[in-house]
Simulated scan of single mutants.
Amino acid sequence: MKNLLTDIAGVKVGHADDARVASGVTAIVFDRPAVASIDVRGGGPGTRECALLDPVATVETIDGLVLSGGSAFGLDAGAGVHACLAAQGRGFQVGGISIPIVPGAIMFDLLNGGDKNWGQYPPYRELGYAAAAAASDDFALGSVGAGLGATTATLKGGLGSASAETPDGVRVGALAVVNAVGNVTIGDGPWFWAAPYEIDGEFGGCGLPPRFTPEMLAMRIKGAAAAKAGENTTLVAVVTDAALTKTQAKRLAMMAQTGFARAIYPVHVPLDGDVVFAAATGDKKVDPLVGLTELGMIAANTVARAIARGVYHASALPFPDAQPAWRDLFG
């Protein structure tokens, strides 16, 4: 296992980004349709085709997922991924026509120093197509794809991923775009809130501080002004090789949201758009009660690890007054 979302067989990930714009897109492509659902906890989400992920909706499976920067402009990225998959003949069959099902979500990165004067149309449709076309078993972490322009309250955000396996051999992976209103690290030190769940020093092995002070527990968010408070959202995709129903995928997404609270402080605030997609490729059976509970528990831990890795691997943007990266300060 490479500690990536693509440790789940039949899952590929691709990035495309624009350094001048300081924004990008990440596409998750399934080799065959996957059962999926969603859980939204943030107060300001931006999503595409997510109503069909409700367990009562007719369509059971999806062909891909798209995560994008650009706020509402980034919703165009879904059209690019859709076009790439349509060219491959992928999709829901209606009267001989294939319609790819590609839900997605966006995060706000419009004030990070990049040039957003893109003219009549934003670049996200083309970036979405390129990301889907580049999807493979291996992919980079940090300031890439949808994580290129991401920030947190104090440090550069980014894209992270992690994977795990239950004792019964069921795998679960997470991919996170970390653009949080709060902090992923504790106080002014190198410690990650997700430290108790770290495996093999995957985000520095710093552990927790020797003690917690009131200053560490004080609220730190992106600026005091209301405009600044809206510059955030963490997007997560959780994928498992378990065989789940759409209702069970919904429950998995809900349980996986716990990982946000283990890795970000504060979280799920009024202007966050925090979203978890959960998808299942259907290769392995799980017990619907104890088995699903264990899978959700491990998924939450994996989400926390993916969030920390997104910040750990990030690089600062090359603009004046850009946020420092974790490695700039703590190496």
Rank of each mutant, 00 (worst) to 15 (best):
V290A: 15
K12M: 11
F108W: 09
P123E: 07
R262P: 00
I8A: 06
G201D: 15
P324G: 02
T245P: 01
T293V: 06
A174S: 11
Q323P: 02
V59T: 14
T233M: 07
T281M: 08
A256F: 01
L295F: 03
G230V: 12
E49N: 14
A263F: 02
A218R: 15
A162H: 05
G91R: 11
H15K: 08
A140K: 13
L208S: 12
D200L: 10
A300C: 09
R171Q: 11
G24N: 03
G64D: 00
A57Y: 12
R211E: 15
M254K: 14
W193A: 06
G201F: 03
A105Y: 03
G96Q: 12
Y129P: 00
R48T: 04
P167V: 08
T152D: 04
V81Y: 00
D137C: 10
P167H: 13
R171P: 01
N232D: 05
V13S: 07
Q248F: 09
K284I: 10
V178P: 01
L141A: 05
N301T: 08
L252Y: 04
L65N: 03
M216N: 05
L329F: 12
A36T: 03
A77G: 03
D168K: 13
I97K: 12
V11S: 03
A162C: 07
G173V: 09
A57Q: 09
L271A: 08
T233E: 05
A280V: 05
V13F: 08
A316P: 11
T240H: 10
G189M: 05
V267Q: 04
C206K: 13
V81N: 00
A162T: 10
V239P: 04
R251V: 10
A130R: 15
E165C: 13
A304W: 00
T154P: 00
K156H: 06
G169M: 09
G14N: 08
A27E: 08
R211G: 10
G160D: 09
R305A: 05
L295V: 02
D188S: 15
A86T: 13
A242P: 06
V178T: 15
V11I: 12
G89E: 11
T234P: 02
A34C: 14
K156A: 08
T245F: 09
T58N: 09
A133W: 01
G158W: 01
V35M: 10
L159I: 10
G91P: 11
R305Y: 08
N183G: 03
A162G: 02
A130V: 00
W326R: 07
A36P: 02
G128M: 06
M219T: 15
G74P: 04
H268Y: 09
I97V: 15
L252I: 04
G291I: 04
T6E: 04
G149L: 07
G182D: 09
A280E: 11
R41I: 12
A229F: 00
T293M: 13
S315G: 14
L127K: 08
G282Q: 08
S161P: 10
L159W: 07
G147D: 01
V94T: 12
A243L: 14
S68D: 07
G205D: 06
T258Y: 08
G64Y: 00
Q323V: 04
G89N: 11
S143L: 03
A19N: 10
Y129W: 14
A249E: 05
T213L: 15
V102R: 01
A325K: 07
V178K: 02
T247G: 14
S315I: 09
G201A: 12
